[in-house]
C-alpha cells in the first residue's frame, strides 16, 4: 500500500527513504496537472485544509494554497503575528477552535522552533510543518530534492555546498538531513559565527572559492536578517568577499552544475544582481524559479498522499 509512514510531516529527518521515494515519484503527475489549461483535479474535493501562519510568508503559504486548490480542497488562511499571541497556551486555544470546525489538515508556520512538533502531539489530524523557527522546513527540503532529481536524475555522490547562515536556517537543517540521507556529499561554507557551537562532525569551509569549481549544487542560503538575535555579520562587503555568488564565481562553476536558493533572495548580499538576471548558458545554472514550480507539485503530492 502506498502510504506515508507517519500521519504528519514535522521534520525532514524522520522521513523514511520510502516516504521520500513515494513523494518524489508522485510529483511528476502533479507537475503535469499544473501545466494544463484547467489546472484542477477533483481528488481532494470536500477536504478542508487550514494554513496556520504565525509568521509572515508569501511563497510557502501561496504554494500550499495553490497546491490545495489544484486538488479541489478548500483552504483557509489564518495569519497571525506571533507577537499578538502568547506562546503555548493561546496557540492551543486557537487550535481547539480550529479543530471544532472539522478541519482535515493543518499547515503551520511558527517562529518558535519545536512548535509544530508540540502541535502535532496535541491534535489527531495530520500536520505539515511549513517552517518553525530555526528548526525545520521539510517541504522545502523535499522540493529541493525534487529539483536536484529533475536536474541530475540521481543523488548518490553529488557534491552539495550549502553556503551562508547555516545556524539560523531551518532550510539548511532540513536539506542537510535529506541530502545526506540520499547519499550526497554535503559541505557547509560559512564563517564560524554562522555555524553551530560544535561543528567538528561537519565538513566546513570558510570561503566559497574553495568549493566553487568542484561543486555540483551550490545551495545558497538566505541571510536571515529577521533572525539576527546576535551581532550581524560585520558588513555586506565582508559577506561579498567570502560568500556571495558573483559573475566571476558563477563562470568558474563546472558544466551541468546548478545554483539553488530557497528565496526570497537578498540581491547584492547572497547573490549579485548580475547573476540573478544573467541569461544564456550561465542563466541555465540558476534553478531558483524551478524550485518554486516544483514546490507546488511536491506539496500537491504530499497533500494527496496524506489526505487522498
Amino acid at each position: 500500500m502506498n502510504m506515508l509512514s507517519k500521519k504528519s510531516i514535522v521534520d525532514a529527518g524522520s522521513l523514511e527513504p520510502e516516504d521520500i521515494e513515494l513523494i518524489l515519484s508522485n510529483a511528476d503527475s502533479f507537475l503535469e496537472i499544473s501545466r494544463r489549461d484547467v489546472k484542477k483535479v477533483p481528488t481532494l474535493r470536500g477536504k478542508t485544509v487550514i494554513n496556520l501562519f504565525f509568521e509572515p510568508s508569501t511563497r510557502t503559504r501561496t504554494s500550499f494554497e495553490i497546491a490545495a486548490k489544484r486538488l479541489s480542497a478548500d483552504i483557509i488562511n489564518f495569519s497571525s503575528s506571533s507577537s499578538s499571541l502568547k506562546k503555548g497556551e493561546s496557540i492551543i486555544d486557537t487550535l481547539k477552535t480550529i479543530l471544532s470546525m472539522n478541519v482535515d489538515l493543518i499547515v503551520i508556520r511558527h517562529s518558535d522552533s519545536g512548535t509544530v512538533k508540540m502541535i502535532d502531539r496535541f491534535v489527531d489530524i495530520p500536520v505539515i510543518n511549513a517552517g518553525d523557527g530555526k528548526y525545520q522546513h521539510p517541504t522545502q527540503a523535499l522540493l529541493d530534492l525534487y529539483t536536484i532529481q529533475k536536474r541530475f536524475g540521481k543523488f548518490e555522490g553529488l557534491k552539495v555546498a550549502i553556503v551562508g547562515d547555516f545556524l539560523d536556517s531551518r532550510v539548511a537543517r532540513s536539506d542537510m538531513d535529506l541530502f545526506e540521507k540520499m547519499g550526497m556529499e554535503v559541505t557547509i561554507v560559512a564563517p564560524t559565527m554562522f555555524l553551530p557551537e560544535d561543528y567538528s562532525e561537519m565538513n566546513v569551509r570558510h570561503n566559497i572559492d574553495e568549493v566553487i569549481k568542484d561543486t555540483d549544487i551550490l545551495y545558497i542560503l538566505r541571510m536571515q536578517l529577521e533572525r539576527q538575535d546576535r551581532k550581524f555579520y560585520p558588513s555586506v562587503m565582508e559577506y561579498n568577499r567570502f560568500l556571495t555568488l558573483d559573475m566571476k564565481r558563477l563562470e568558474e562553476m563546472k558544466p551541468g552544475s546548478v545554483v539553488m536558493h530557497p528565496g526570497p533572495v537578498n540581491r547584492g548580499t547572497e547573490i549579485t544582481d548580475e547573476v540573478m538576471d544573467v541569461g544564456g548558458t550561465l542563466g541555465e545554472k540558476i534553478a531558483i524559479e524551478e524550485q518554486v514550480t516544483y514546490g507546488v507539485a511536491i506539496r500537491m503530492a504530499i497533500l494527496y498522499l496524506i489526505l487522498g
Binding site: 500500500m1 502506498n2 502510504m3 513515494l22 515519484s25 508522485n26 503527475s29 496537472i33 483535479v41 477533483p42 481528488t43 486538488l71 494527496y304 498522499l305 489526505l307 487522498g308
Partner: peptide, 15 residues
C-alpha cells in the same frame, strides 16, 4: 487516479 471515486478508501495508487 486523481479522478477516482474511491480515493480515501485506503487505495492510494501512484499515478
Amino acid at each position: 487516479t486523481f479522478y477516482r471515486d474511491d480515493i480515501g478508501k485506503n487505495i492510494k495508487p501512484t499515478a
